[in-house]
Design a protein around this nucleic acid. Structure first.
Length: 438
RNA sequence: GGCCCCGUCGUCCAGAGGCCUAGGACGCUGGGUUUUCAACCCAGAAACGCCGGUUCGAAUCCGGUCGGGGCUGCCA
């Protein structure tokens, strides 16, 4: 059993292609089959080395590996169609010799027999039947001597011994053409499986106009590969029993093409984000910490200073609980970085009051005298101040939050203060009080 | 236009004739918890496109219709 994914390097890895690759991979893994990755770069105009690299990289990022194909090798060369043009030309001319095709203004066209029925079984859609009278003669070799997709893809599938062709439904209508070529070549027919397409929120085939739909774009947004893998599995398939969070191994153990739905699915970023949050929270803290620090440095475009590192180490456990993507980190920890400290004036106005100012002055003095600046003492100090001044928790705490972090939204207050450290905390209070009381 | 595919809450999925006054999840609304935001917990609104047929019985089978989508390229 051999399956394949054959992306064209005319763009970076698209989510739809990633999902198709994923299902092929799952089926191969589930059944001990061979998974092949080859590159369909017959479109010389638009194919680039860079796109190819991006595609392979992102397949790997998703956790997909392949037994045969580009980069890993195998019996069929480098698995790039651009390396096999001679082979396709040979086949095209062979087909002309055998009268299956004919020359047409310099190109070679496949001669489609009329009034014939093409039958094949589709793993997702059942028995399919097409009338060849509805299929027009199609070009297999262009006048510039380059093969078209129909020719190259079919020849490769035959030459490489692909036994299950699972691809997007957009190619369903082209399948009779491919079968016709295979029959002309005297090849055994593989099984087919046309997977439902992924749509954008507008119900149209997911494409560039729905924004950036590349896997890389989501990766850049701070989506975890495990979450992306999991989410993609859920589009058109489910392992049953209402299970929605699972890993690769579990998916493999449950996957089958005949459980894949035939109808297209809309890519819903909201659910992906939720799933991502679930994965972030269930990540082992050590790994989260490591990834988080890298991410912050990336966003900052510089290395972290030692004291910043120390502060982040203190706050990150709380942050892990409240981010949806790795990119959300930045906003949560910004106040701990050696970057300009800015207070959101509008937010301050909503928490500012005479009481608040009294409170800030009071805890500032107390902090200066506090010897052991630990979590427990910070909380005790702040609560004591509330009682002494008879100020409501919310009034005292929210104004402190804005005074220290600059905004009303931050990680838990005591943790934030503790992470920031005594000196900086006092400095912030001083600065805020000065700036905000007049 | 022609050919083809598809049709369960807004979205993803469960449902393979009686277990369905249709279940789960995201999102949404309300409530709880709370020093903010999250997280978490509870509750709620929300769907079998429509019409026929088969059957004792249909979301499930068949036909039609309507709706959506794909292909119709010397793109893939």
């Amino acid at each position: 059993m051999k399956l394949r994914i054959a992306p064209s390097p005319t763009g970076s890895l698209h989510i739809g292609n990633a999902r198709t690759a994923l299902f092929n991979w799952l089926y191969a893994k589930a059944n001990g089959g061979t998974f092949v990755v080859r590159i369909d770069d017959t479109d010389m105009e638009r194919s680039t080395e860079e796109h190819q690299k991006n595609i392979l990289e992102n397949l790997q990022w998703l956790g997909l590996d392949w037994d045969e194909g580009v980069d890993v090798g195998g019996e069929h060369g480098d698995y790039r169609q651009s390396s096999r043009f001679e082979r396709y030309r040979e086949v095209a001319h062979q087909l002309v010799e055998k009268s299956f095709a004919y020359e047409d203004d310099g190109a070679i066209r496949f001669k489609v027999p009329k009034d014939q029925t093409i039958n094949f079984k589709d793993f997702v859609r059942g028995d399919m039947s097409f009338d060849t009278s509805d299929v027009e003669d199609f070009v297999i070799l262009r006048s510039d001597n380059s093969p078209t997709y129909h020719l190259a893809s079919t020849v490769d599938d035959v030459d490489y011994g692909i036994t299950i062709i699972a691809r997007g439904e957009d190619i369903l209508s082209s399948t009779p053409k491919h079968i016709l070529i295979m029959e002309a070549l005297g090849a055994d027919l593989p099984n087919f499986c046309h997977l439902p397409l992924l749509f954008g929120p507008d119900g149209k085939k997911l494409s560039k106009r729905h924004g950036d739909t590349s896997v890389k774009a989501f990766r850049d947004k701070g989506i975890l590969n495990d979450a992306m893998f999991n989410y993609l599995c859920l589009l058109g398939w489910s392992p049953g029993d209402d299970v929605e969070l699972f890993d690769r191994e579990f998916a493999i153990s449950k996957f089958d093409f005949n459980k894949v739905l035939p109808n297209s699915a809309i890519f819903d970023e909201k659910k992906l984000l939720w799933l991502n949050g679930q994965y972030i929270r269930s990540t082992a803290y050590d790994k989260f910490l490591k990834d988080a620090l890298i991410k912050v440095e990336e966003n900052l475009n510089r290395a972290l200073f030692p004291e910043e590192n120390e502060r982040l180490n203190k706050i990150l456990p709380s942050v892990q609980e409240r981010v949806e993507t790795m990119n959300d980190l930045q906003a949560q920890v910004l106040f701990l970085l050696d970057e300009p400290f800015l207070i959101n004036q509008e937010e301050w106005d909503t928490v500012n009051s005479e009481e608040a100012q009294k409170y800030l002055n009071n805890i500032r003095k107390k902090f200066i005298d506090l010897e052991d600046f630990n979590l427990e003492n910070i909380e005790l100090l702040m609560r004591t101040a509330l009682e002494e001044l008879e100020i409501k928790t919310k009034v005292g705490f929210q104004s402190t939050r804005v005074a220290i972090t600059g905004t009303k939204i931050s990680p838990p207050l005591f943790e934030s203060i503790f992470a920031l450290g005594k000196e900086t905390c006092i400095a912030r209070l001083t600065e805020s009080i000065e700036k905000l009381t007049n």
